[in-house]
């Protein structure tokens, strides 16, 4: 399955949900936020969202500095 993650093309070996994607990419689960096609998906919904072909996924961290 072909998707975009932070504007880079990525081929997924199998279908997965958002939480599995973060694990697959070795991203921290704590402090991360995920958006699909510019819509933030809440942490509580990561396991329910199954990634679709062509999804444009953005991963970013909470930043605290000020």
């Amino acid at each position: 399955m072909k998707i975009q993650v932070n504007e880079q093309a990525l081929i997924l070996p199998n279908s997965m949900n958002l939480e599995q994607l973060l694990v697959h990419l070795e991203k921290p689960l704590i402090g991360s936020a995920v958006a699909v096609n510019m819509q933030v998906i809440s942490r509580s919904e990561w396991t329910q969202y199954n990634i679709n072909e062509g999804d444009n996924i953005s991963l970013f961290q909470a930043i605290a500095g000020g």
């Binding site: 704590i30 909470a62 500095g65």
Partner: peptide, 24 residues
Amino acid sequence: HCLFPSSEEQTLNCSNSGIIGPVV
């Protein structure tokens, strides 16, 4: 909290990551 549900201090701040003045 809907966006960032964590309150753990794993997050990045100016003293551990640096910052350029005009950005902040």
